[in-house]
Structure formats: C-alpha cells, structure tokens
C-alpha cells in the first residue's frame, strides 16, 4: 500500500541554520498525526515542504508515491490551511467556499451540505454576514480557512495550529468536528498544535519536533499527556 506521505532525508537549511532535518517520516492512509514542538522547531516549514511551498535543500516528499514537487495530482486530495496566506481575503466566505467548491467540481448544493457540520463551529458569525474575509476577526478567519480546507473532503488534511485564536467553545467544537471528519471519511490528518491536551484527543500518533529533528514518535495512550508535559517542562 502506498504511503499517504513519505518523507526521505528531508533537509531545509538557510545560510546559517538547518531548520528541518528529517531522515524518514511515514504517514499511512487514515492516520491522524499531531505535530508538537516549541516555536522554531520547524513545524510550519515542514508543512510548507509537504505542500511544495518551500523548496527542500535536500531530500524528497512523496504523496501516494509521487513526489509533490512540481506536480498537481496531490492538490486534488489534499486540503490545507496554514495561515492567512491561504485565504483569498477580498472574497466573502460564501464566495470563497464557492470558488474552492468549483475547483473540486462541487455544486452550490454540495458546498452548503458540506458546510452543515460546521454550523456549530461557525456560531452564526461566518455565513450571510455580507463582509469580506479580510474584515473578519483572526479567529473567524481561521474557521473559514479550516472549513475551506475540509470542504472537498480531502483524503489528507493539513492544519497548522487550528486551535490558536479560537475561543474555548470553538476549540471544543473543532476538536469534535475533526474527530468526526476522521471517523466518517477516514481523512488522514496532520495537525500541529501547542495545545497538548487537544492534540492528543484528536490524534492517535504524536510526533515531537525539536530544532528541526524528530525526537519522539509515539502512539497516543493514556500516559501520553503526562509524557508530553514532562517533556516540555523546563
């Protein structure tokens, strides 16, 4: 079986520092992986390389056996939201969802139906606001981005700190939403977060990144939270 993501000898070095150095990382279809690590650990850079937004200094990333660099095939089954740069902020959320839906051949009805599970998360503040995305708060922008990433029911979902900027209720709703998306569609997920308890609840496998290297790679168990807290306690 092809791996959803396979990383081999991946290195990203800027003139003075190596920010990512991962000899191997395999993500099987249907896995949910939580990526944790302090600021500067290289999480976002790793995600950008998975999405072919940054050219690796060395090594390859393959998705379903095909290198992601300069190919388009993975874009059809990968949904992602890293930061505001992924939003087309002069559109209204509806226009944006429609645009993304169109790219994946979804009708307006499909889009509405797929946004249904997001009703709670949106909390009545996203749709029918007659506002451009750029005028929304950071938290609401994040909700738009996550919904757009999941809209096509991608096989692979990549989210960078989805819980940041969200209020506590929204965090809990998002957690449940991600779990149900995984259960219903078998989505493979790669999620980075600073919130250890949330990420453990959503992900069955935790990868700790430190200074660009994978220092631990473990399956989530009852003791994982303790282990993580112990690890991050200075």
């Amino acid at each position: 079986m092809n791996m959803m993501i396979e990383v081999r000898d991946l290195v990203k070095a800027y003139s003075d520092a190596t920010v990512v150095n991962i000899p191997a990382l395999h993500v099987a279809p249907g896995e949910t992986i939580g990526l944790v690590g302090n600021n500067g650990a290289g999480k976002t850079t790793l995600f950008r390389m998975l999405l072919d937004l940054v050219r690796p200094t060395d090594g390859v990333v393959t998705s379903k056996g095909i290198p992601v660099a300069h190919t388009d095939a993975w874009k059809y089954y990968t949904g992602s939201h890293l930061d505001e740069g992924f939003l087309i902020d002069y559109l209204t959320p509806e226009e944006y969802f429609k645009f993304i839906g169109d790219l994946h051949g979804l009708s307006t009805g499909d889009v509405l139906e797929r946004l249904q599970p997001f009703t709670d998360l949106f909390n009545g503040e996203i749709l029918q606001q007659r506002k451009y995305i750029r005028d929304f708060s950071k938290g609401n922008q994040k909700k738009v981005g996550i919904a757009a990433a999941a809209l096509s029911h991608p096989e692979l979902l990549i989210l960078d700190e989805p819980f940041a900027n969200l209020d506590p209720s929204s965090q809990i709703r998002l957690k449940n939403l991600l779990r149900s998306l995984h259960e219903q569609h078998g989505m493979t997920m790669l999620i980075s977060s600073h919130d250890l308890s949330h990420v453990i609840e959503v992900c069955k496998r935790i990868v700790i990144l430190e200074k660009g290297k994978i220092v631990q790679d473990m399956q989530t168990t009852e003791d994982t939270l303790q282990a993580l807290e112990a690890y991050f306690t200075v």
């Binding site: 072919d52 388009d72 874009k75 740069g85």
Partner: peptide, 13 residues
C-alpha cells in the same frame, strides 16, 4: 501576493 500560497496548494495548474 497575499494569497499566493492558496493558489499554489489548490488544484490550479
């Protein structure tokens, strides 16, 4: 430029 990443990760050749 503000949403170039979006265009790169979406299925647009």
């Amino acid at each position: 430029s503000a949403h170039y990443d979006a265009l790169l990760t979406r299925p647009i050749t």
